[in-house]
Computed example of a mutant assay.
Amino acid sequence: MSTAAWAWGIAAVSSIIAVTAALVVLRLRRAWQADRADLRRLRRTAHRNADQISVVSHEIRTPLALMKGAADLLAEGTPGPLTPSQARFVETISANCHTVIDLAQDLLVQARIDAGMFELHLQRVDFRSLATGVVRELRLLHPVGIALDCPGAPPRAWADAKLMRQAITNLLTNAMAHAEDARLITLRIVGADEQVLISVSDDGSGMSSEQRQQLFERFASGRPLRDGTGLGLVITRQIVRMHGGEVYVDTTPGRGTTMMFSVPTSHEDSARPARAEAAS
């Protein structure tokens, strides 16, 4: 083969490679642009859904709060004394109003997380003080005994205090609602290995492996969640992961359940994008 023919062949191959590369780049660019457009559409849809749920949540909570307030006044005997039967009916009304108000709040929180609308407001949180307030409030609402165990110096970590309060409340509420035979719920908070460990233990009947698998499913219908939607635990795990931690479950049939989550104490490890967990 002559030098000219060889050069022409090299040039032809180079041209084919260049054209092929250009086509590949063009296709990748178009696919990337399509993906970006799809992502923008999904974000708009998620934001619109969150806005709609926000309106519905507000419209539900407002009349329910008025109903609960009226029921509480009746229970206190402000309008006059109640018979034992009337007192039980009023207690049922108040408790169910509270349940639906919490459900509306959970749906709103979940929609905002899915839409990536949550932003962490990190501050140095004293977890002993935070937990003390949560336990004090829940003791007034639930008959099950709640113990707080937080030995040593108060554990502190960079966290969103409002969201951490919700996560702890969710775990305690879940334990009290679904461990009917439990006599004591224990909230433990300790600092170890550059993280704060928060655990909620009950001395109830525990869970089977099937029930364990349903814990973090939305609207699960297994025994531990039969009286609720399961959103509380889903939201709790998302909140913890947003802080760079994780949720763990240890349960034994007949011996109770412990749910634990960790929160890093360092500022750098304490924040993850909320949207990253929306699909979990």
Rank of each mutant, 00 (worst) to 15 (best):
L130D: 05
A147Q: 15
V247A: 01
E217P: 00
L130N: 05
P253A: 04
H267L: 02
R255M: 10
N174M: 02
R30K: 08
L233I: 00
R48W: 11
A274Q: 00
M1G: 15
C97W: 09
M117C: 04
V13C: 14
I168Y: 02
S54N: 10
M1K: 13
A115V: 00
A153T: 15
Q33E: 06
R43Q: 03
P151C: 15
A153V: 14
A18Q: 06
A157G: 09
R223Q: 14
R44A: 14
R27P: 02
G232F: 01
P253N: 04
A71F: 05
A31K: 06
L138D: 11
I10S: 12
A161G: 07
L108D: 04
S54D: 13
A279I: 01
V100I: 15
T257E: 09
A111F: 03
S280E: 09
L231P: 05
M67E: 11
L42W: 10
G80K: 13
K68Q: 09
M67G: 10
A7F: 12
A11N: 15
H98F: 11
E137L: 05
R43Y: 02
R124S: 01
H47L: 09
R88S: 10
K68Y: 06
L148Y: 13
Q52C: 12
A70C: 10
T20Q: 07
D181A: 06
H243W: 00
S199K: 05
